[in-house]
């Protein structure tokens, strides 16, 4: 039996899809040790949409994002941004890591952290000018943290830390925003503030991709889902891909009936 090779027609179609997508991965495999955390992943995130990456714990959600950004080195696979090599497009991509990954007792003020988002503009030795400060202050305002600029970061609550991280990403003034669990362990006020910022970004034709763990809010917050369980389970509009059978495939027995209620 012979395997049919990919036709040039299909090739061309995929190239068009890649060019239109702010972030796409093909055949991405990442491994810690010799057990792949994500295996042979194809993903095409849609321009101007809000996409949730969902899947059970340890399904490779964060790893996928980190590998797409080149923070973790994949074993195989290629990443393109707007059809180009990722490195060429870095300036147009902002990333919000999980807030638990840093030491919040670090000697910095809120403003200092947000200023880090402008590192690419400032470079090694560039002078910090009033306009850079104003950008940073404005970003804090957008996440509802005006008045916190001079606060020591160690004094912030979990939700405030998350908003500061979001403000730092806004200061990057990017086209594509990648967020790793932005709603994990935050208070209700922060969740509202973050989602309204993200929706504003979508209104500005920006693309948002977020690792998300709360199935009950997927339909309310996002346009599209990417369901992952080491390999891809489904990808598409919430109405098409966020189905009980797909979730069952990804979560298996771990999916509680209560969570299924979210599907309505």
């Amino acid at each position: 039996m012979s395997v049919e090779l990919v036709t040039t027609e299909a090739n061309r179609e995929d190239r068009d899809a890649l060019a239109a997508s702010p972030l796409a991965v093909r055949g991405l495999t990442v491994s810690y040790g010799e057990k792949p955390a994500v295996f042979s992943l194809d993903a095409t995130f849609e321009q101007g949409a809000m996409t949730a990456i969902i899947g059970p714990n340890g399904a490779g959600k964060s790893t996928m994002l980190k590998a797409a950004l080149g923070i973790v080195k994949p074993v195989s696979g290629q990443v393109t941004a707007w059809g180009e090599d990722l490195e060429e497009m870095r300036a147009r991509i902002a990333y919000v890591p999980q807030r638990a990954t840093v030491d919040w007792d670090f000697p910095a003020r809120v403003l200092d952290v947000v200023m880090m988002g402008q590192y690419r503009k400032l470079g090694l030795l560039g002078r910090v000018k009033t306009k850079h400060m104003q950008t940073a202050l404005h970003c804090l305002e957008r996440v509802g943290m005006d008045g916190f600029a001079d606060r020591q970061i160690g004094q912030l609550s979990g939700g405030q830390q998350q908003r500061v991280f979001l403000a730092r990403a806004l200061a990057q003034d990017a086209e594509l925003y990648l967020l790793d669990e932005p709603f994990a362990g935050v208070d209700a006020a922060t969740e509202t503030a973050i989602i309204s910022v993200l929706k504003d970004l979508r209104g500005l034709e920006k693309t948002v991709v977020a690792v998300h763990h709360d199935l009950s809010t997927v339909a309310e917050y996002f346009d599209r889902v990417f369901i992952i369980s080491t390999s891809k389970v489904a990808e598409g509009a919430v109405a098409d891909a966020f189905t009980q059978s797909n979730l069952q495939k990804a979560y298996g027995g771990r999916l509680a009936t209560a969570q299924m209620g979210a599907l309505g």
Binding site: R90, P97, V102, A108, R120
Partner: peptide, 10 residues
């Protein structure tokens, strides 16, 4: 402070 973020800036 944040090596993951630093890495995301290439």
């Amino acid at each position: 402070f944040d090596r993951v973020f630093a890495a995301s800036l290439a």
